[in-house]
Write a protein that binds this DNA or RNA. Structure first.
Length: 574
RNA sequence: GAUUCAGUAGCUCAGCUGGUAGAGCACAUCCCUUUUAAGGAUGGGGUCCUGGGUUCGAAUCCCAGCUGAAUCACCA
């Protein structure tokens, strides 16, 4: 009997796998299985009086078994949900051979196995819609036990709640925790809903480069990589703005892209290194139009998803119905602090910040100071959807100056639940102004701002050919999903949030041990005892301790191996 | 990056002021003709995250580390 590192349950399942094979049943058959209905359709549409569903074929995971003599109940889970199976021995084994029921179903099948069944739908005495099974086949064996989560009247028992487990093994989370698959369907539906709106307006869905020689369109630290053939650095995009505007130059009236962006910054409950944004650019529009359009989009998303516009998010009720409140940034600061900062110079602003205990430092210019004021004193208070308009020009190098005030820009953000959700501009299309703004950014960068934008001369060249007046808007899809599904962490709306890599212990091959003079039969023992590398054996100082450990293990587990002498063990170590 | 909390069976968790490692579910064996989170009985299963220290004795106390979470800081 070989020692093993598999748990008892895993060993049993592997044994069952072999038993199935011995019985001539392929635990991983290749042939397609002709499913003709989902569990959800059956539950929704079954009508006893019509006796519809007289012949159904369904497949999924076996999630529970309740065996009562020659009849059993089981639960089958497919993508749409669960349905109860009624399995009677003499129904699935009409002849003399009762192995399929007695051995395969009762003994060799486990929770998590994929099976397929054929039968008819009926209602049990307890009133539950069930499938009376006539035929049962094994579709795929599961050899790793699934945590068992139970649900009764909407109450969940023994849910797997450990975030590390849920995020690292999302496939398990999806199988066992009710609602998780549904949540990610909602995410998809949000995107579909937006796409419908854009397409119905005739805007074109496009794709632009993820690998960019100049990471533009936002202020953020990029990931950097290297292209071997060109032998140049390439950056993973931090935004798709500049490429989409090039397409407006090229003559499209409306373009949009659902894009993964990458930022090499901190990770927390609202930041993942890769995240999804949607950016849209529409020619001949301005930011006023875009505010209307954004409202329309958000309202539609809420309605399509929930059939209503008033949603609970955390402790708040949020009304997503149009129209949303609109305030200028300076107006909002005035409203929430009582201080009118319009016309103030840098020194005055700095004093205001000090007065209000807003932390500032020497590198901050006028725009940054106003931004800090807003972020500290206003943003958190804006729970209901609110457009904040007219940001200082220093903060918005890609945005057109305000038509009435050259210190401001025609920019708005949509703030919901105290957090920014959308960002939009009347896009800057003056190539000379654009180049100057880039040069301003370069100065910031020389001052040590590692998030200042790079100069993209090709983009300036594109603007020189002429770009029509255009309005653009970007929205974080992950954050939108969090809002719309009432999730508090970005990790909960990403299938595979970024995690520190799992530490896997290095394990040496048995050859390495035998090369060091250790007999093959002791290798697995050593590894089970935690000496997974030959170095870890060599690192030991006292052969006596190891000798005792392995002899003890041999005795305890009745392996029947001939114990080595202490001298032998000492040779392994030396 | 700072502070706090957590890590015990496949899963959810208990384990007090240090004294033989526990429950439920899951698993195994047996009994049972239709159950509803779970029919009954019996049983197996543990690197108490890792490494040090204190102690006659550590899951428990101390130190360091690993992993995760929360709060804060930073951050288009």
């Amino acid at each position: 009997m070989a020692p093993t590192q598999l748990s008892e349950q895993e060993q049993i399942r592997r044994k069952s796998l072999e038993e199935l094979r011995k019985m001539g049943i392929d635990p991983y058959p290749a042939a397609m299985f002709p499913v003709n209905v989902s569990s959800k359709e059956i539950k929704e549409e079954f009508d006893e009086s019509k006796n519809n569903f007289g012949s159904v074929v369904v497949a999924g995971r076996l999630m529970s078994q309740r065996i009562m003599g020659k009849a059993s109940f089981a639960e089958l889970q497919d993508e749409s949900g669960r349905i109860q199976l009624y399995i009677a021995r003499d129904e699935i084994c009409p002849g003399d051979d009762k192995e399929l029921y007695n051995t395969v179903f009762k003994k060799l099948l486990d929770i998590g196995d994929f099976i397929g069944v054929k039968g008819f739908v009926f209602r049990t005495q307890m009133g539950e819609i069930s499938i009376h099974v006539k035929e049962l086949v094994v579709l795929a064996k599961s050899i790793r036990p699934l945590p068992v989560v139970k649900e009764k009247d909407g109450k969940v028992y023994d849910a797997v709640t450990d975030p590390e487990f849920r995020y690292r093994q999302r496939y398990v989370d999806l199988v066992i925790n009710p609602g998780v698959r549904e949540l990610f369907k909602k995410r998809s539906q949000i995107i579909t809903s937006m796409r419908e709106l854009f397409n119905s307006n005739g805007y074109l869905e496009v794709e632009t480069p993820i690998l960019q020689p100049i990471p533009g369109g936002a202020a953020a630290r990029p990931f950097i990589t290297h292209h071997n053939t060109l032998d140049i650095p390439l950056y993973l995009r931090i935004a798709n703005e500049l490429y989409l505007k090039r397409l407006i130059v090229g003559g499209y009236d409306g373009v949009y892209e659902f894009a993964k962006d990458f930022r090499n910054e901190g990770m927390d409950r609202t930041h993942n290194p890769e995240f999804t944004v949607m950016e849209i650019y529409v020619a001949y529009k301005d930011y006023n139009w875009m505010m209307d359009f954004t409202e329309q989009m958000i309202e539609k998303v809420a309605l399509d998803l929930h059939g209503k516009t008033k949603l609970t998010v955390g402790a708040n009720e949020i009304e997503f119905a149009r129209p949303y409140k609109r305030m200028t940034m300076i107006g909002a600061i005035k409203e929430y602090t009582g201080i009118d900062i319009s016309g103030m110079d840098e020194g005055q602003l700095r004093n205001v910040c000090k007065e209000l205990n807003v932390e500032v430092d020497e590198t901050m210019g006028k725009g940054k100071l106003i931004d800090e004021l807003f972020g500290e004193k206003v943003e958190d208070s804006l729970i209901q959807p609110t457009f904040i308009m007219d940001y200082p020009v220093e903060m918005s190098p890609l945005c057109k100056k305000h038509r009435n005030n050259p210190e401001l820009t025609e920019r708005f953000e949509l703030i919901v639940n105290g957090k920014e959700l959308c960002n939009a501009y009347s896009e800057l299309n003056d190539p000379i102004d654009q180049l100057e703004r880039f040069q301003e950014q370069l100065k910031l960068s020389e001052k040590g701002d590692d998030e200042a934008m790079f100069i993209d001369l090709d983009f300036v060249r594109a603007l020189e050919y002429g770009m029509p007046p255009t309005s653009g808007m970007g929205i974080g899809i992950d954050r939108l999903t969090m809002l719309m599904t009432n999730q508090s962490g970005i990790q909960d709306v990403l299938f595979f949030p970024q995690m520190r890599p799992e530490k896997r212990e290095k394990t040496d091959s048995p050859e390495k041990y035998t090369e060091a003079g250790i007999p093959i039969e002791w290798v697995e023992v050593l590894q089970v005892l935690g000496y997974k590398t030959i170095e870890s054996v060599k690192a030991l100082e006292k052969p006596g301790k190891l000798h005792q450990e392995i002899c003890g293990y041999n005795k305890k587990n009745a392996l029947g191996l001939q114990n080595p002498s202490q001298e032998d063990v000492a040779k392994w170590i030396s």
